[in-house]
C-alpha cells in the first residue's frame, strides 16, 4: 500500500474515532443537561400576563397566587395519552418543529383555555410560541398568540414580525384565517418583516399548535377528567 493511501486511511480513521468520542460526550451531556419544559413560576407569569387583553392578568389574580394555587397545569404525556390517544411525540413534525407543552387553565377568569407551546427554527434559532385556544360549542378558536422565546432579532437583523409593535398584525392575520392558509408573503406584507426565515419559522410553530388543537379539542372532557384525577397536584 502506498504511503499516501495509508495517510488518507489513517486520517479518515482518526477523524472517525474523534467524531465517535465527541458523539458519546454529547449524548452523555444531553442526558444530564437537556432543557425540559416545566410549568415554572416564569411560565405561569407568562401565561397569566402575556395573554391578558383587557384586565392586567388572564386569571384575574396575580401571578404569584396563580402559581401557588395551581391556576394552570401542564399536561403530562400519560394524561395526554389516556385522554386523547396521542403523546407529545405524535405532534412532532421533525426535530426542529414540535409541540413542547400543553397547558390548561383550571381556575380563574380564563378557566378552560388551552395553551399550546410549539417550537420551530427560524433564521437559525428556535422560536417558541404559545397559542391559546377557547373551546366553545364543540369548536375551538384562537384567543391569542405570544412569543415565549426567540433569538431572531439580535444584531442588526430587524425581524419586524417578532417585534411587539408589529406582532399584533400577525395575530390578527392568523385569527382571520384559522385554517392557516396564510403565505409568508401575506405576513411580510402585514408586518413589514424583512427576514423570511423568521416569518416561516413563526408560521410553522403556530401551524403546529393549531394542528395539535385540531387533534385534541374533541377530547376536552377526557382531558379535564384526567387533570381532575391529580387531586390538586400541579404538574
Amino acid at each position: 500500500m502506498k504511503a499516501s493511501t495509508k495517510n488518507v486511511i489513517k486520517s479518515i480513521a482518526v477523524l472517525s474515532v474523534i467524531a465517535l468520542v465527541c458523539v458519546a460526550i454529547l449524548s452523555l451531556a444531553n442526558v444530564f443537561l437537556k432543557k425540559e419544559v416545566t410549568l415554572d413560576k416564569a411560565t405561569v407569569k407568562f401565561l397569566n400576563e402575556k395573554f391578558a387583553t383587557t384586565a392586567p392578568t388572564t386569571t384575574g389574580t396575580d401571578s404569584d397566587t396563580a402559581y401557588n394555587e395551581d391556576y394552570f397545569v401542564m399536561l403530562t404525556d400519560g394524561e395526554l395519552s389516556n385522554a386523547s390517544g396521542y403523546t407529545y411525540k405524535s405532534f412532532k413534525s421533525n426535530s426542529s418543529n414540535y409541540v413542547s407543552a400543553i397547558y390548561y387553565a383550571q381556575k380563574g377568569a380564563n378557566e378552560g383555555v388551552y395553551y399550546i407551546e410549539s417550537v420551530s427554527v427560524g433564521y437559525q434559532n428556535p422560536i417558541s410560541v404559545v397559542v391559546s385556544f377557547v373551546i366553545d360549542n364543540g369548536d375551538f378558536s384562537i384567543q391569542n398568540i405570544a412569543v415565549k422565546e426567540q433569538r431572531e432579532d439580535f444584531g442588526d437583523r430587524k425581524t419586524q414580525v417578532l417585534n411587539p409593535e408589529t406582532f399584533f398584525y400577525y395575530v390578527s392575520l392568523v385569527k382571520s384565517d384559522e385554517d392557516m392558509n396564510i403565505t409568508d408573503a401575506d405576513i411580510i406584507a402585514a408586518t413589514g418583516a424583512t427576514t423570511k426565515k423568521s416569518v416561516a419559522g413563526l408560521n410553522r410553530a403556530v401551524t403546529r399548535a393549531i394542528d395539535t388543537m385540531n387533534k385534541i379539542y374533541t377530547k376536552s372532557d377526557e382531558i379535564k377528567a384526567e387533570i381532575n384525577k391529580r387531586g390538586g397536584q400541579n404538574g
Binding site: 486520517s11 482518526v14 477523524l15 451531556a29 437537556k34
Partner: peptide
Amino acid sequence: IPGEVRLPAYIVIIATFVTVVQLFVAK
C-alpha cells in the same frame, strides 16, 4: 492526529465542548 486533518479535528473537538457549555447555560 495527522497534520493534514488537524484543523477539522480541532474544530470537531472544540464544537463538542461548546455544545456542552451551551446546554449547561440553557438549563
